[in-house]
Design a binder for these strands. Structure first.
Lengths: 187, 187
DNA sequence: TGAATTACCTAAGCCAATTAGGCAACCCGG
DNA sequence: CCGGGTTGCCTAATTGGCTTAGGTAATTCA
């Protein structure tokens, strides 16, 4: 009997790939075991079950995305940084739709605190250094940026723009223009 | 044997209430049958199964929300209309979180076309009458409005704002201010 | 009132999730 | 090279959800 050589890391990695291929909702112990050529109970030595598997993929995705976003904003400021951050999210959502969906999964408080989630808001807040907002306004701005980016990606990936012109990317650029202008002339 | 007096409409209505109480993900033939005090197969005379049940709840929610939004924007224009539309979405999402989640479910093209979905984009487009955008820019604006509203509601309901100040409603008002200003001075 | 309709039921099959426990492949001290 | 411990993957078995088939009793209407 040839062993498959699984580890927790490899199982989670394969889970992320499966989610990208078939959708995050299809990520279960069953589908993943099939893809790995292994019986379902074999996964239980490496992950706690379907729920734990999904949580681990979510944590992986949050960390990957935070790394990508951090790289994108490094050395940039102002609108350039805003656009780079936004593009890193949109690019990740297009390349890895299952993982992006995983980042939207609700985590319990302790897990969320220990995840890369806080790095995301720190990065968004870092962008604001290039604009000059009063301290009290910064959280409002962080929330607006998050809403626009996540809202747009969600509508686009749900196919909301598929059957209407003009091109979705044009709308995306307009949305980022609007946010940039708003940050420079905060109400 | 006392009959429960189910109809398709009552089943779907109960499904919507269950989704609001326990979350849309918990809406299954099993949980709903338990709540209705009926055996699971009894539901199959009224709805096609779990998937069909969810689709019907989604269609109900889309229609309810479109009605509410239409009422909100009637007789208003400009920023007043924008705020009324946005508040109707946010209010619905707070009062009926399960139904709101249902509206985000992906429907196949034919079902989506026949649903109240198109009324939502028509209503958003109607708001733009109070602003004066070139025809070619209107779809960009519709998409921006949708992104901000849905993005904000999603982040808020996911608990993204729970552990940070200031109050979420203050950020919401700022976001709507930004959209209003953008629509009046479209880039 | 009796026959057609229909609302709900039981029975049964399939599949996913999970737990318990077994065997064989690998790892390492001798 | 070899024997013992460790561990990776297995089979078996339980539970519970989804769905279909088909039966029975309540309702309806001629």
């Amino acid at each position: 009997m040839v062993r498959a050589g699984l580890t927790t890391e490899r199982v989670v990695q394969a889970g992320a790939e499966l989610a990208d291929d078939l959708g995050f909702a299809e990520l279960t112990a069953s589908t993943l075991a099939r893809r790995l050529g292994v019986k379902v109970p074999s996964l239980y030595s490496h992950v706690g079950g379907t729920q734990d598997l999904r949580t681990r993929v979510a944590l992986l995705a949050l960390a990957e995305l935070a790394d990508r976003a951090a790289l994108a904003v490094a050395g940039r400021s102002g609108k350039e940084a805003l656009v780079a951050l936004a593009e890193s999210y949109r690019g990740y959502a297009r390349e890895h739709p299952g993982r992006y969906a995983a980042t939207r999964m609700r985590l319990d408080t302790a897990t969320a605190m220990a995840s890369a989630g806080p790095r995301h808001s720190q990065l968004t807040r870092a962008i604001l250094r290039g604009y000059h907002l009063a301290e009290a306004e910064q959280n409002h701005a962080v929330r607006l940026i998050g809403s626009v980016i996540h809202g747009y990606i969600e509508l686009e990936s749900a196919g909301g723009f598929d059957h209407s012109l003009p091109d979705a990317t044009e709308s995306w650029n307009r949305a980022l223009d609007v946010v940039d202008i708003a940050l420079r002339n905060w109400p």
